[in-house]
Amino acid sequence: MAYQSTGVDFRTRLQDWIPKLVLSPSLAAMLIFVYGFIVFTFYLSFTGSKMLPSFDLVGFENYAKLWNLSAWWVAVVNLMIFASLYITICTAIGLTLAILLDQKIRGEGVLRPIYLYPMALSFIVTGTAWKWIMDPGIGIENSMHLWGWTSFQFNWIKDRDMAIYTVVIAAVWQTSGFVMAMFLAGLRGIDNEILKAAQIDGASNFSLYRRIVIPMLRPAFLSAFVILAHLAVKSYDLIIALTGGGPGRATELPATFMYSYTFTRNSMGIGAASAVIMLMTIAAIMTPYLYAELKEKS
């Protein structure tokens, strides 16, 4: 009996191992290049690394220095302004467009792809286009003047106090269509029997949306928030292409701060500390969401 099953055993054993072997290169890559690197950067943030990684521990010195740097505070405050406006405006535009598009619109098939195409572009392309569109010398301001509105002023991109809002404009242009698509998918998933019943009860269109439809879109709101928040924290390319962090330091974000402190200012320890803070911010947003998503499925 025993010798009969050895052949089968070997085969099943092998079959047991093959899936794990197939998964192992990806697993190894992930453990090294993602989690190993996170640990490494975390470690570096406690060292006195300057131009190259070094391993002399200095405790929390880098974090203390970081939070005393006005450049870091500028980046953090900018991120708060940018993220809150970006998330709010994208959600508002996305929801409005989705609701309006869902009213049996003729030409929906044409409008939807037009709203969404910016998402296919690189932030560098978006940044380049908006950089010159918002340039007071050749862009919208100039066009308005040529059309006869000579007092029109739009020089935010050159204005230290307003430049961060030009980043919001370009970023909203790029992503709001995507948020529209998320809400539209949510709307299309709502059972219309509920709505019909409410309509028969005499609910007005406005209260129909406020009381019934929008509360039912909760999952879409949550997804939109998480996606937009994590995009905001990661924003780097758009800043580089649109303003280069300027004028002065007016549009620096944590991502551009990290890059310049690490690679051009030779303060790798501080750069690593700022990267750790970015990661923690995103982890605080993503982990509960991903956990809930995974739990729901199983």
């Binding site: 990290m258 700022s274 750790v276 995103i282 982990t287 991903l290």
Partner: peptide, 16 residues
């Protein structure tokens, strides 16, 4: 772990 790795800010891996 794979899922979380999709969303990390890549600044955290640049130096290593």
């Amino acid at each position: 772990l794979l899922l979380f790795s999709c969303f990390i800010p890549f600044q955290i891996v640049l130096i290593p």
